[in-house]
């Protein structure tokens, strides 16, 4: 349904050009949950925004193709894009407090997408709003509230409701559980899965929380330094990671079972995206790095629908040293 090929996005600032997304390719099927994970600053949100073409003025897409059901999102006119936004593809932002206009009531915020995309009579609009509030389990009495009057979890649900109100085919969820406590997070994820079954839409779930990814997603892409390092279905990623970074991420996850296992964290910090290093981005923090890694690793196919950007991807996986 969504096919991104070789997408590159940069930010132009007075300090120079920042390569936020570097030749990223991925594909999302109908009704699947596709996860994108990685450290903060690896380009995930920029990627999300570029799909809908809502990047800030300082950003520019320098190359690549984004195909949505055969439509080239990069070349359609702004007017066409506006029709696609929200109605076909919607997005749930991370920080609902800031993402919802504080001077409007919830019901008006929800009505807005309907106003833009569906020319519905008032009655119908009201009904839809009520319906979608039900779906996200917000009581109807909250309709006349303002965003600042609601709790974080409720606000997030409002954002989700907004994202679903036009029945899009693809929902991009950008870190939408960050800042919520685990219990609320769990609830919301379960609810979303429910809704997905009911309404039928695909989802791109962006989060740095690996446990969420592994639980909720069908397939995963691991992002680092603006690049996708590994793509695989979540089961394979957990059992047989084919990239040292993925391995390191898994290692840093605490599990209930191995309570005694020492947590191995990753030393160093993400690369400077103003002057990215040549060769493998992950090299400076990789325990398996060799001379060869100074050249850019190719995107190797490791299995059906599985890719890894590492010279050693095809060797038997990066077991703990």
């Amino acid at each position: 349904m969504l096919d991104i090929a070789d997408l590159s996005v940069v930010y132009r600032g007075y300090r120079g050009v920042l390569k936020a997304v570097d030749k990223v390719s991925l594909a999302v099927e109908d009704n699947e949950v596709f996860g994108i994970t990685g450290e903060s600053g690896c380009g995930k949100s920029t990627l999300a925004a570029s799909i809908l073409r809502v990047l800030p003025q300082s950003a520019e897409v320098t190359s690549g193709r984004i195909l949505f059901r055969g439509i080239d999102l990069r070349s359609v006119s702004e007017a066409e894009m506006r029709k696609i936004r929200w109605k076909q593809i919607s997005i749930v932002f991370q920080n609902a407090m800031n993402a919802l206009d504080p001077v409007y009531k919830i019901k008006d915020l929800l009505k807005e997408p309907l106003r833009v995309h569906e020319g519905m009579p008032d009655e119908e609009t009201k009904r839809r709003v009520g319906e979608v509030l039900n779906l996200v389990r917000i009581s109807q009495s909250r309709m006349d509230s303002y965003p600042h009057e609601l709790s974080g979890g409720t606000r997030q649900r409002v954002m989700i409701a907004m994202a679903l109100i036009c029945r899009p085919q693809l929902v991009i969820a950008d870190e939408f559980t960050t800042g919520l406590d685990v219990i609320v997070q769990d609830q919301i994820l379960a609810d979303i899965e429910d809704l997905r079954q009911k309404l039928g839409f695909a989802m791109i779930l962006i989060t740095h929380d690996l446990s969420v990814i592994l639980e909720a997603c069908d397939r995963v892409a691991v992002m680092y330094g603006g690049r996708i390092l590994e793509t695989a279905d979540s089961k394979s990623i957990l059992q047989d990671p084919r990239h040292p970074y993925t391995r390191a991420l898994l290692d840093s996850m605490p599990t209930i079972r191995d309570a005694k296992k020492k947590l191995r964290s990753l030393s160093g910090s993400p690369p400077d995206m103003l002057n990215p290093p040549t060769g493998c981005r992950f090299m400076s923090r990789c325990t398996f790095a060799t001379q060869l890694c100074q050249t850019d690793p190719p995107n190797l196919q490791v299995g059906v629908g599985r890719y890894s950007r590492c010279h050693y991807a095809l060797d038997q996986g990066f077991k703990r040293r």
Binding site: A49, E78, R82, I84, F93, N98, L100, D101, E112, V116
Partner: peptide, 26 residues
């Protein structure tokens, strides 16, 4: 610079509407 402006665009509002309905009031 606020996020709800991005939301307004993402919903599919044209620049004029984004301004009138959201930026200006705030």
């Amino acid at each position: 610079k606020e996020e709800f402006i991005t939301t307004a665009r993402a919903i599919g509002l044209d620049e004029g509407a984004v301004f009138r309905r959201h930026a200006f009031r705030n």
